[in-house]
Structures are given as C-alpha cells and as structure tokens.
Design a protein around this nucleic acid. Structure first.
Lengths: 236, 236
DNA sequence: CATGGTTATATTGTCAGACAATAAGACAAT
DNA sequence: ATTGTCTTATTGTCTGACAATATAACCATG
C-alpha cells in the first residue's frame, strides 16, 4: 500500500498521440468533420503532420468512444446518430447526472458547496437580467460542478464522452427557430430545485430533480428534431 | 434516407486487431494478467505473435475502456481499483441497469417478455431445487435480457464495459468465505420483484426494484471487501 | 553508511516504407 | 441493362529504425 504522496506532480510529457486524438475529436465535435463524412488516414496524416501510426491509434480511441464508426477495409466515418440513438444517449445522461447529483448531495464538502452556490446564483442573476449567454455559462458550470463534486472517479469521464457525442445536437437545441420560449425559465427553475435539494442534503430529491430536468431538456430537443425535416445526419 | 435492406449480411472478416484486443481483454478479465501487473509491448507481441502496431492499437482501446492505465514512457499496467472506485462503478451500474429495466417495461415486445419469463422461472426453479449454479445462470440471463430487450442502442455496450471492469471482483463476491447466507434468497426475491413490475408494465417500479437489488448486491460485496485484509490489488 | 551523481539498459514514442487484401468505381462485353 | 473484369484508392499488417525517457546499476564522495 503506497503512501499517499503529499502533492501530485502533474508531469505529463503529453504524448503526441493525445494531441492528435484531441484534435480529431474537436474537429468532429465542432462539426468540421460532419456526420457521415469519411476520414481517410492519408487525409488526417497530411493535415496533422504526423505518421499513420499515430492517426490510427487515435482513431481506435475515438472508435471506442463512439465518435466514429470504422467499416472494415473502408475506414472510419464520423458517426451519425438516429433520433432514437440521440434520445437514448440523453436518457443515459439523465440517470448519470441524477446519480452525480445524489452523490453530491451526500458527499460534497463545504468548498464544493460554495462553488455550486456561486454558479447557481450567477446563472439565476444572469437570467433575470436577460443575459442569456451568462445564464447558459452559469448553468453549464453548475452542472460541471455537480459532476466533479460528486467525488465519483468514473462519472466525469463517462459524462464527458456522452457530451462529446451529443454536443452537436445540443447546439441545434439552442438555435432552433422553433425552440420553446418557456424553456429557459423551466431550466432555471429546474436548477433552483436541484440546488435547494442539495442544500438540504436531500439526496433523493436532488437526484429526482436532476433527472427530471434532464428529461425535460431532452424532450424539448426531441420535439425540435422531430420538426426538422432535413434529416439528422449530413450528406456526404 | 437509405432503404432498409432486406437482410443484413454479417460480413465482418474480423480484422486481426479485434482478436488481439479480445485476447488481451479476456486475459485481464480472467485474471491471467493481474491488477498492477505491467504489460510490455514486447511480451504481448511475442505471446500473441503479432506486430507491435496491432498490440499498440489494441492497448489504446483497452485504455479508453478503463481496463488498463498507460503511464507515459513506462507503458500500460492492468488497472487496479480502489474500493472507492469499485463502489462507484457499482453505483453507476445500478442506475444504468435501472434505466434498462425501465425501458424494458415500457418498450419490450412479446418475444422479449417471453424470453424474460423463461429466464426468470428457470432461475427461480433452480434456486428452489438448490441448484446454485443454475440459479446464477438464470439470473445472469435474466439481466442480460433486461438490457438487450430494453431497445437501447448504447446501454449494452456501456454495461458490458462496466462488467469487464468489475467482473474480477464479482467473482470474489461469489466465493468469499464470509459471504452472507441470506444473499442468494435476497437476489431471487429482488428478481421476482423486478419481474412482476415488468409484467405489470410498471416502469417506475421496475427501475426502482432493479436499482435496489443492484445496490444490495454492491453493499454485500463492499462488506466482503472491507473484511478482506489483503488489499484489493495484487502485488506485482 | 548514506547520499548524490553518472552510466547503462529496457521500454516506449514516433517515424518511414513496404506489401497484401479488399472495396468501390470504371469500363468493357454480352 | 446486366454481368464480369480491371483499376485504383484505401485499409490492414509487418518490419526496422531511432530518439526520448524512466528505471536500475553502479560508482564516488562526504
């Protein structure tokens, strides 16, 4: 049993392959590579300036994260999601965030509670002023804190992976012409409910509220997607 | 929108790297490579008879599944889990299985319901006869069906990954000298509760029952681990 | 003896180049 | 128009190389 070191040194010579992986992932998430699009190894090696070895290793990781699909002897394509799959991912996210909220309510220390307070008040304030961007940022920070403060070793990574698969469609949800006008209010209300449950250390209520809020968000997105005639995936 | 093909061809040609990946994963899960143990690339290439390229690609996948940890310039080691991490993984599994049960209750078709019935009755019968192995098998099949019948595209893979990270300790739970004698009965009762909730198409109850049962199982394992003096991880 | 520095060794990180195997597209023939 | 053949682009896999790094072994010095 090794003694816990006094301070962790973050020395991480950051292998090049991680940068490669990161670069491709970001390009996919940001939509530079669109769903359905083929990603040939040559193209990637050229644009990234690294060897095929590294590109292939990065592709393997992105594959197990579900960001790309690799067709044998054909190569990877940016994964397209059906509406069913999107809905499924959102449902999974809902229960995982619910779990995070539960753990947070049970285990969070004073510092994390304080940070959460900050984010919550900030989001609410921004919303009341009419600062949509600020409200969104605060809300995002709130949820990030919820996860990181849950003291769960695995949840952050799992949710991050989910996020990266979903992010493209979240964006749609924010800019869609037909998005509901009451939704932002709803989101803030949801946040308040979660927040107060946590402050009361009511783990069950925190979980339920988080799940419900996530589900409402998902429902709204699914409604928008259903009304979007052009299919979810891009043409190649 | 491509027309749905009349029959899917399972043409896979199974790239060699998948076999490599599978082989290493199995060796880890079965405990041939023990937690904490180093896995050098040379060793793997030799024992598997493939090139470093393939070994490295396989390692990347196993890394993102959480089965190994790669230390920069040092190479991979079979991941060791602290009791906290084990508990965390079980908690995640609990909510995901709960979600699966919920979806199953909502969406399962007659065929899957029938299969579930079969597995359930088989498990119960076996238990009543005193056939511990048969009961376990039936129980496992029951849970597998729960997941596969949930019509969730992503849950099966996620739960499979979790399983592979946990399986080693599940084994401990079954053979530990101090394991509770009432636990098998409890597990069967839990299964019955889940089953009847599903037959009533009561999604909420199915989810709750599944989560509770998973939690009880986890609690039992954690109790056993706490009483096991030798640490969770193997020495190298 | 302890301590600190230096060299040696094993291993990973990365590259380049090669060639077989396959899938998709182009083309020809019936 | 359908079928069969050829071509080409691309992946799948291997080999060998070399630099960068961490660990182990060793040595020197106080």
């Amino acid at each position: 049993m090794p003694a816990t070191p006094l301070l962790e040194i973050a020395k991480h010579a950051a292998p090049l392959r991680q940068q490669v992986e990161h670069a491709i992932r970001e390009a996919i998430i940001k939509g530079q590579f669109r769903p359905g699009q083929r990603l040939t190894e040559r193209e990637l090696t050229l644009s990234l300036g690294v060897s095929r070895t590294l590109v292939r290793e990065a592709l393997r990781q992105l594959e197990s994260e579900g960001l790309i699909t690799v067709i044998p002897n054909r190569g990877p394509i940016v994964r397209e999601l059906s509406t069913d799959e999107i809905e499924d991912l959102y449902a999974i996210r809902a229960v995982l965030e619910g779990l995070a909220a539960r753990s947070f309510a049970e285990k969070a220390d004073a510092k994390n509670l304080h940070l959460l307070d900050q984010a919550a008040t900030e989001a609410i304030k921004a919303y009341e002023i009419g600062d949509a961007v600020g409200a969104l940022e605060g809300k995002n920070r709130f949820y990030d804190l919820l996860v990181s403060g849950s003291r769960s070793p695995s949840l952050p990574a799992m949710l991050a992976t989910l996020q990266s698969r979903i992010r493209q469609w979240r964006a749609i949800g924010m800019t869609h012409p037909q998005r509901s006008s009451t939704r932002p209010q709803e989101a803030i209300d949801g946040l308040k409910t979660i927040w107060s449950a946590i402050r009361n250390r009511d783990a069950a209520a925190a979980e339920a509220a988080t799940r419900d809020e996530a589900r409402r968000g998902a429902a709204e997105l699914m409604r928008l997607l259903a009304q979007t005639p052009e299919n979810v995936s891009a043409r190649r």
